[in-house]
């Protein structure tokens, strides 16, 4: 009898130890949301004022197709524009669609820049689309999208 009880206890103890790490993992996943959560759809609505944007070949977004390390992903955005007082790029916005805060950077340009080019390195939490949104001086919004495959995530 003693041996039988011992095995019963051992079995229940094993079940508990198996459950505990799963519970703590679930708690971790909840914390990942972060204080600055901001989805891409919401950000697009706020910036364009509900007008929406259309894809355009004028905007070129250079990003690697496969990023080994999600903590450092180099991106370059170039917008075709003469950059004169009457026709220039007002702003370039960069979004990582699946990051908890999808906004990465908003670059507000002036005609004094000469060229509408911005480059930086961003963090990507998982495989996702990177979107560049260009705000032109005539009020139109143009986008370019590039999907980046991330093998090791870089957020937290």
């Amino acid at each position: 009898m003693q041996r039988r009880e011992f095995f019963k206890k051992l079995g229940s103890a094993a079940a508990i130890t198996a459950v505990i790490p799963m519970m703590s993992f679930a708690a971790d996943a909840k914390k990942q949301a972060g204080p600055n959560e901001f989805s891409y759809e919401k950000a697009l609505d706020v910036i364009t004022g509900g007008k929406g944007a259309k894809a355009s070949p004028k905007v070129s977004l250079k990003a690697p197709a496969i990023a080994e390390n999600g903590a450092v992903v180099p991106i370059t955005v170039e917008v075709e524009s003469p950059m004169t007082e009457s026709d220039y790029v007002k702003a370039i916005h960069i979004f990582a669609t699946k990051n908890s805060n999808s906004r990465s950077a908003s670059v507000h340009l002036t005609p004094a820049n000469g060229k509408a080019i911005f480059a930086a390195r961003i963090k990507l939490g998982s495989t996702q689309d990177v979107i560049a949104l260009a705000e032109m001086s005539d009020g139109t919004f143009l986008t370019a999208t590039q999907s980046v495959k991330v093998t090791i995530g870089g957020c937290g």
Partner: peptide, 16 residues
């Protein structure tokens, strides 16, 4: 440039 937390450590900003 308005920046949020998803820029890499030791950031480099390139403009013209």
């Amino acid at each position: 440039i308005n920046v949020w937390e998803s820029l890499s450590a030791n950031p480099v900003f390139t403009i013209y």
